[in-house]
Amino acid sequence: MNKLVFCIVLVMFFFNASAQNRFLTKDAKIKFNSSTPLEDIVAESDQATTFIDIDKNEVAFSVLTTSFKFRRALMEEHFNENYMESSKFPKAKFFGKIIPQIDWKSRKELMANVKGELTMHGVSKEVTFNARITPGNDKITASAVLKITPEMFNITIPSALRDKIAKEVTINIEAIYVPYNQ
């Protein structure tokens, strides 16, 4: 009985400890650019959800692919129906580690590497990218840029359109995290 109580207290302690060190935002911005001289292809979602766990130095992202807004409705339709196949794969996700261990007590802007697994279109790939992080007590600001190719995620682009879409897609991420105590 005592053991059981001890276990419950221990679990609660760890749960509590980790909960206080999590930062969250549901309004992170993810913008991607695959423009070529032939066509401007830029899309943005303002509703990505992302966590940072400062104890574990971990970061997680997820975004609904139908939340990306394009300049033209036709581009949105192509993106969701032909390329991302949003009805089959409605989310894009990332989970990874921030390297090296960040001094979360610092108040200066830091550069770090983020390494982890990016899953979209049903394919998971390991990616590494640079991030700019400004730690804080009541908020953490972060931005990152990563480059991927559609082919990495088995996204096939018809040859007639291949020249209109950049070979490498640049993804910009901006997030302002606030403490999450739940």
């Binding site: 509703q47 997820s62 609904l64």
Partner: peptide, 13 residues
């Protein structure tokens, strides 16, 4: 609105 799926919350855009 148009339902776009679930993250932590169910999103309707």
């Amino acid at each position: 609105g148009r339902c776009s799926g679930m993250l932590m919350d169910v999103q309707v855009i």
